[in-house]
Amino acid sequence: MADEHESHGHGHSHGHDDFTDPPSDIELRVKALESLLVEKGLANREAIDAVIDTYETKVGPRNGAAVVARAWAEPEFKTWLLEDSTAAIASMGYVGAQGEQMRVLENTDDTHNLVVCTLCSCYPWPVLGLPPVWYKSAPYRSRAVSDPRGVLDEFGTSVPETTEVRVWDSTSEMRYLVLPQRPEGTEGWSAQQLEELVSRNSMIGVEVARTPEATGSAG
């Protein structure tokens, strides 16, 4: 696990070293609950470990990047992906909870798509993993629908005034994945090479895909 120090970007600045200080109230409360559940037989620790491991190491945004890169590289797959997103994504093995029904939203010169869940934290787990803290936070959830261009600005993303910004509020069990525009200068690249350009944030729609220059790839 990466560092657990300092600000977590979700409103708490602990300002201490978790390795030496006594556990916090929340840590104790969680430990107590888990012990109780285990003692009662309602849950077992190995199953909880397995769930954590699955979402820390197996399911994540590289899945979505593989889908996007393949759509860039294979026109027939892209057509299928836009016509029947659920089936095309399932064909690559990305299925399950929070991705039972999928719609892929294509960014073009005319349209920029942005995904939010104003009511909670709905997010396409099979292709993107668990959502980042900012996606679940009040600032993003409140303003993505009312001030999408301001939100994009905060991510350093400039969308021309002539491009329509469409915000998709994930209020049902339908899940959305943005197909970002393929960066220029990538003609002839393989799907594997293209994957490196597909950031998680570009598949939520708050950023565009990385350029070859930004990744230092010569193609």
Binding site: M1, G9, I26, I52, P132, R143
Partner: peptide, 22 residues
């Protein structure tokens, strides 16, 4: 919004978060 850099953000920010999720 103060997003953490994508490359630096862990799935869980503390062990207890993962336990709650699990």
């Amino acid at each position: 919004i103060n997003a953490e850099p994508e490359s630096a953000e862990p799935v869980f920010h503390a062990a207890w978060e993962g336990r709650v999720y699990g």
